Computed example of a mutant assay.
Amino acid sequence: MLETIKNRLKNFPLECTQPGPQERGSTAAVLVALHGDSADPQVILTQRAFHLNNHAGEVAFPGGMWDETDTDLLQTALREAHEEIGLLPSLVEPIATLPVAIPKRRSLRVTPFVGLVDGPLDLVAEPGEIGALFDAPLRQFMNVENYQYFEMKTEYGALRFPFLPYNGYKIWGFTLKVLTDMLNSTLEANIHLDYPSHERIEELRQSEQLKKRGPQ
């Protein structure tokens, strides 16, 4: 499986770019770190600490905001992975840059980098940022029967999101979308999940604005 993913990711060549001057405050990078048995690879995931102000308790890739000391966004992803989980950059073989994504609930441009990681690994979560650290087998994401849906209240109303339950964790949102898109592109996984459309979000937003205005 891992060899097939690696070969197909040649369609997403590694690009080490810097954010433009106007994007630097809203640009981040994450590391999709794959390791383990080639036939049954794992992805390294974190659970954000519950005391954080943003996205507390959510499952995420190692990564974070671009810093002026970073030469490029790949270094951002590697630096943050080192700071958050103790993953040495020297153990990572970067192989691909996935398409830039913009999480629906935040004005942020996030670049995911895929890297192959040599083991054995001795990773330690940084408690100020990371509540838990775990591996998830890519095979779990390949089975469409594993997916469920939940409703979340937002500023615009209730929205329905897909998620993958795994060992007590809820993998959803940006993290889930990046992984399933990668598997669809490399393994023809045929994972089609129902996300809230931009049209639906806009409809709820306009409805909420009308409520706030009251009778005309």
Rank of each mutant, 00 (worst) to 15 (best):
L187N: 07
R139Q: 11
M142F: 01
G157D: 11
Y169V: 01
R160C: 09
Q140C: 07
E155V: 15
G157K: 06
Y169R: 06
A132W: 03
Y156T: 11
P162Y: 07
D194G: 06
G173I: 01
L176K: 02
Q140V: 03
G128P: 00
D122S: 12
G131R: 11
Y169P: 01
T186F: 04
P162S: 12
V124T: 12
M182D: 05
E151W: 13
L159M: 12
D194I: 12
Q148S: 10
M152F: 15
I130M: 05
A158H: 10
V124A: 14
G128T: 06
L123A: 02
L133D: 02
F163M: 08
L193F: 12
L193D: 05
W172C: 07
G128F: 02
Q140M: 08
A189R: 03
A189M: 04
G173Q: 04
L193S: 11
I130E: 00
K153A: 15
E145W: 13
G173N: 05
T186A: 06
L164W: 00
Y166S: 00
W172I: 03
E145M: 13
L164K: 03
L193W: 13
F161K: 02
F134Q: 03
P127R: 10
N184G: 15
R160Y: 08
K153N: 14
Y195C: 04
D135R: 02
G131V: 09
N143D: 15
D122Y: 09
F163E: 00
I171T: 02
Q148A: 14
A158Q: 10
F161Y: 15
S185M: 08
L179R: 02
I191E: 04
A158N: 13
G128W: 02
K170D: 06
T175K: 08
M152K: 12
P127N: 12
Y156V: 11
M182S: 06
L133M: 10
P120N: 11
F163N: 01
W172F: 15
E188V: 13
L123V: 06
T180N: 02
N184K: 09
P162M: 08
T180H: 04
F163Y: 13
H192K: 10
D135T: 03
N167S: 10
I130N: 01
F163P: 02
I130L: 10
G173F: 03
M152I: 11
W172V: 03
V178A: 08
T154M: 10
Y169T: 01
D194N: 11
P137E: 04
F174P: 00
T186G: 06
N190C: 13
L179T: 05
K170W: 08
F161I: 05
V144F: 15
P120H: 10
R160A: 06
D181Q: 13
M152T: 11
H192Q: 15
I130S: 01
P120K: 09
P162G: 12
E151I: 03
A132C: 07
P120I: 07
D181G: 07
D181M: 14
L164I: 08
Y147T: 04
T154Q: 07
Y147W: 09
T186Y: 05
P165A: 05
F141A: 01
P120Y: 09
Q140S: 09
L187G: 06
V178L: 07
Q140N: 09
N143W: 05
Q140K: 07
Y156N: 08
E129H: 11
Y156K: 09
V124P: 01
E155G: 13
Q148L: 13
G168H: 10
A158Y: 14
L123F: 05
L159H: 09
V144C: 11
N167P: 00
L138M: 08
